[in-house]
Design a protein around this nucleic acid. Structure first.
Ligand SMILES: [Mn+2]
Ligand SMILES: [Mn+2]
Ligand SMILES: [Mn+2]
Ligand SMILES: [Mn+2]
Lengths: 218, 218
DNA sequence: AAAAAAATTCAGTATAACCTAAATTTTATT
DNA sequence: AATAAAATTTAGGTTATACTGAATTTTTTT
């Protein structure tokens, strides 16, 4: 059984490793878990002795098979709880993350199975992120960043890179949500801001900072 | 903010104090939280310094106003989650306690308000225990132990003193649930076992060990 | 009132998780 | 290749929680 903190490290390593494809480095991890590199080194030793990570001093870490399984379980729980909060308890998409951070650590196989069933086996969370199956399989959607789209290209908002409250609330004011139809009308050379036709009926201008945080399926 | 363990102590003190009417003693508390009296003494000092308990060495403890408020909030969360698990996720009444022990520590005002609303503001949990209001008011039902009923007296099963899985599962085999109609047909002098008419159509015999763990409203 | 038993506290130990500062290793630059 | 810079680890220490065994205080029994 992992401690609360160990679970957070594992989850973080998975997130920073891009589905366990890249090594994760101590300083990046320290920043992500809001602690000091020295503390991370301590923890990496622990995680290694528990066979959750592959670890060679100074060389960065990856998750072992077991570590990745743990990570996907926690992500599954986090995202299912987010769906619960939005669909059943009428939370807004910017209110769910903090609570889900706590709920993801609840230990009960039965609970999460039944929750999944109760929610109708959702495939995506409120921010468009895919929910891993009970077997630990997560299918990645084909999607590109809005900032990478060409003029006149169309698509549908599928997922958000930044899920901070402030970003989500700003999207609310813009009227952008998961599933919104997008067509690129123009891209300004000067600042890379894009003019977008939203849901075929509204024209809005999006800064580069925003367009690099929105994924679109095309 | 209280730690997980502090919350468990506070809840336990409340439970052992019979709604804060009696002092609670170190050894009893140690047994209840499954630790050593020496550890309890440590914790009592901490809880005292946080002004959650009234504490005089060797004299037992009671909760302060603030301590009691905390206790009732935790109990409220525990029981609301139990209702959720049974009503929405099809848990049986003997499966909920362990998970609720974890869920009761989730910190979110909004979550518990919305959960309460989602469940339709239930007054009782699956074991018949009253759910404190958001303001911390818990109304005690008028009820007596089945073992204290007289011959020919009638009533309705309202609450269970023992909520262990084994007891609840035994009640399942007897066909007893919250709301079951009860009439005392006979009481054996020899072992205090009672013969009961259940729901006006079935006759069962109940040992004293069982009858002292069932509350009945009359 | 003294002795025995029970309850409680005190003193010391262990573990998880963190920190700062210093040392080491790797990488980048001259 | 030598030096400088950056990244990482190690060393040593702190705080919070919770444990055990010994000492102390209170209560009960004789
Ligand atoms: Mn989230
Ligand atoms: Mn999410
Ligand atoms: Mn319970
Ligand atoms: Mn209950």
């Amino acid at each position: 059984m992992l401690t609360y903190t160990e679970e957070n490290y594992i989850k973080c390593i998975y997130a920073l490793s891009d589905d366990n494809k890249k090594e994760v480095f101590t300083n990046d991890l320290a920043e992500a878990v809001k602690t000091k590199p020295a503390s991370v080194s301590d923890m990496l030793k622990r995680l290694h002795s528990k066979k959750l990570i592959n670890y060679k001093r100074y060389k960065g870490v990856t998750l072992t098979r077991s570590g990745k399984e743990h990570a996907l379980k926690i992500i599954r729980k986090h995202r299912l709880w987010e769906v619960f909060l939005v669909d059943k308890l009428k939370f807004t998409w910017d209110q769910v993350h903090e609570v889900a951070e706590q709920l993801e650590h609840i230990q009960s196989q039965l609970l999460i199975e039944r929750l999944d069933e109760f929610l109708g086996y959702p495939a995506y969370d409120p921010h468009g992120d895919p929910i891993p199956s009970a077997e630990g399989v997560m299918k990645i959607k084909k999607q590109i960043l809005l900032s990478e789209m060409k003029k006149n290209q169309s698509g549908e908002v599928s997922c958000l890179k930044d899920t901070s409250s402030s970003f989500l609330q700003y999207l609310d004011t813009l009227g952008i949500e998961i599933g919104s139809k997008i067509k690129i009308e123009d891209i300004a050379d000067y600042d890379r801001s894009v003019t977008v036709i939203l849901n075929k009926n509204r024209k809005i201008v999006i800064s580069e900072k925003v367009s690099t945080n929105i994924f679109v399926s095309i």
